[in-house]
Design a protein around this nucleic acid. Structure first.
Lengths: 164, 164
DNA sequence: TGTACATCAGTGAACGCGCGTTCACTGATGTAC
DNA sequence: TGTACATCAGTGAACGCGCGTTCACTGATGTAC
């Protein structure tokens, strides 16, 4: 069937948004093209009407996620008080436990490091907004990686105290 | 053929060491069992004489890498001066550019976060040694993920100034 | 305005490849007697 | 000490499965006249 340009663009966006969410939640390697398309309400065969390749989608998903992060960081960062609430939200258990709704960098930085130059370039915009607070990122990454909940909470608390 | 227990143990260790190195360098998902066995000087078929499964190897490689890290951190951390040289080594371009010889957490924390409870538990020992300096980890992770070399150097420098 | 054809996003089956895992077989060393 | 058998790490072919990608086909909408 043929759709209007607007409908097609809306589907394209939906695919990117769902891909970004799924990638952050499960990592690039644990998400299939079919899974993304299903989440966007389509079948896997239609994928190549929207993207050249899977890598192309990964690039788009990273760029979208980083644009979102950068926007949020700029909004929050405007005031001292905003800075504090950004920090406490970033280091919250909610953020730790919901990577799919969270920071792209805290979820995918290491996979991006092993990806193509294009994907690494798409990753850069969000980095500018956080690298002066690398402890936030390190804290969330570690808190997500340990099995012991008490230790995980302790990590978040330690970083909170240090940067707060 | 049959080998002495000593020979078998030596091969087992070689497999774990090579797996750890390759995993840190390329990530779990980009390393095959065959590649690890070849690096250890064996063929892939012999793998199951040493490990129950691929996941079993991942667990062993993480545990080995973390034991190594914890040992190094304890050695370095003994003095103020040692602390300084640990930080500067951790944030060096050498460490950034050679993940295969570097910190397991800086290379694999995000993949570990999505792995099994067993693997996350094996990851914990090294975490104790670094989480109070989460900025180090965050800095290296970000420095490795960006495409622009100047930005990457700037990240390491910013973290160095903050923690130094 | 109506008719014929072109377009193209979408569908679902199929292809090809890589990887984890299995398996029959080998042969050097260990063990029983 | 010598002989016969058991063991088991190692080899390399093969299996099965999942995933990215391709492809023939569909059918609603756009375009030409």
């Amino acid at each position: 069937m043929r759709y209007t340009a607007k409908e097609t663009a809306a589907k394209h966006d939906r695919i990117v948004r769902e891909a970004s969410r799924l990638f952050r939640e499960k990592g690039f390697e644990n998400v299939t093209v079919g899974e993304v398309m299903q989440a966007a309400g389509l079948t896997h065969g239609a994928f190549y009407a929207h993207f050249e390749s899977r890598q192309d989608l990964e690039k788009a998903a990273i760029a979208w996620g980083q644009a979102l992060s950068a926007g949020l960081a700029r909004k929050y960062g405007a005031t001292k008080k905003g800075g504090r609430s950004f920090v406490s939200e970033y280091l919250s258990s909610r953020h730790r436990d919901n990577p799919g709704d969270g920071c792209t960098m805290a979820a995918l930085a290491q996979e991006v490091a092993r990806s193509t130059p294009e994907i690494r370039a798409a990753f850069e915009p969000g980095v500018e907004e956080i690298f002066r607070n690398a402890a936030l990122l390190g804290g969330v990454v570690l808190a997500r990686a340990v099995e012991d909940n008490a230790l995980s909470d302790e990590i978040l608390e330690a970083v909170r105290r240090k940067v707060g």
